Simulated scan of single mutants.
Amino acid sequence: MPLPASSKVPDRSTALASPLVPYGWDDGWQDAFRPWAARGLVPGRVIRVDRGQCDVVTPDGTVRADTAFVVPRDPMKVICTGDWAALDPEGGSPRYVRDHLPRRTALVRSGSSKRSDAQVLAANIDRAVIAVSLAAELDLARIERFTALAWESGAEPLVVLTKADLVPDPATLGHLLSDVGRTVPGVTVLAVSSADGTGLERLAALAGSGTTVLLGQSGAGKSTLANTLIGREAMEVRAVRDMDGKGRHTTTTRNLLTLPGGGVLIDTPGLRGVGLWDAGTGVDRVFAEIEEYARRCRFQDCAHHSEPGCAVLAAVDGGELPARRLESYRKLQRENQRIVAKTDARLRQEIRREWRIRGAEARAAADAKRGRLR
């Protein structure tokens, strides 16, 4: 199907007059779109994707479009919520998305399969709100994992402790905030409640510009939070199970919605698993204090296991660094290393070599211990 030809390229001055501005359109996107505009294509932002089709906001309203022309082998290029798309002008039936503009940021996790596939959860986001319910015991390791994912995306993470009304004691709530703050250094941590309004004004101010994505497990209160920020019942909400406090999936697709005070919000389905995808930089940022200690280690390639002169192990022994933090750091580093190794043969060889060396060291230590016991 030939594309309509057009030599008309929108003038730069028209960018901020576009109906797409509330969805994040700016002069930068206007300039980036010029090659597609020259082909007669229309810009739009993807607000929902479902089974090979997507809803796209265009200058002429919201349209349903087919993504059949954008089915690449590279899963990183699959159309997702938040993308800026180039689609056919009015008149075609079906109407196709032909391409998407290069992403400024992308929230990526490893796919649920055992293959080395990536899954883009949301594109062109400015901040990632990690919703954590206070109705259940805090899982600090999971918060670290979500935050690493957010940092790696290029967005700014923000941890929101939901259902704060369930912790009426200010001292207890303060301790919980401090615990999470130490877990994600450099990240803003808020306690909010959709029931009594705690913290919502500040959260709305932070989300009042750019694109915000909501992340978290089922039952974390994401859909309730989304409805509160949007000011209407845009997302279905279900009660959590009484027996274990876990929620049921109510959001089944990623939806992009405008906020009354400005900015847009992407609500996502509850994530049971959050596998890292080449998130080394994100992990380093979450564990910034470990990286700082590591600079003082005797050896530059110190693995922080049993090496002499390891400043990280010394910090653990001295009570400066919680052992839980180091174990969580090791776990995420190993996981990230494995996913990168799936696509890097040289790194796979290096990892196997390191495993062999550590195995030999462990066996030698065990032999020496047995010799001392005789």
Rank of each mutant, 00 (worst) to 15 (best):
R325S: 06
P102L: 04
R374M: 05
G270Y: 06
E350S: 13
L225M: 07
G82I: 02
P102F: 07
A155C: 09
A171D: 12
T250N: 03
T253N: 12
V71C: 00
R324W: 05
F287D: 03
L256T: 02
L256F: 08
R73S: 13
V159I: 06
L203Y: 08
K331F: 10
A86M: 12
G199Y: 11
T172E: 14
Y96N: 10
V274R: 04
D11V: 13
A341I: 03
A136Y: 00
G309S: 09
L121P: 12
V57M: 15
R182A: 14
S7M: 11
A364N: 13
R298D: 03
D284I: 02
A366Y: 05
G371C: 11
I143S: 07
L326S: 07
A362H: 14
T252G: 05
I130T: 08
A150Q: 03
A191G: 12
T67N: 00
G245I: 10
E307M: 00
A85W: 10
V312Q: 02
P322S: 06
G44A: 02
D88A: 09
V187S: 08
P170L: 08
S110N: 04
C80Y: 03
T252P: 00
L134F: 01
L256E: 06
A32R: 15
T281H: 10
P157D: 12
E354R: 15
Y96H: 14
L373G: 04
P10N: 12
L206R: 06
H249C: 09
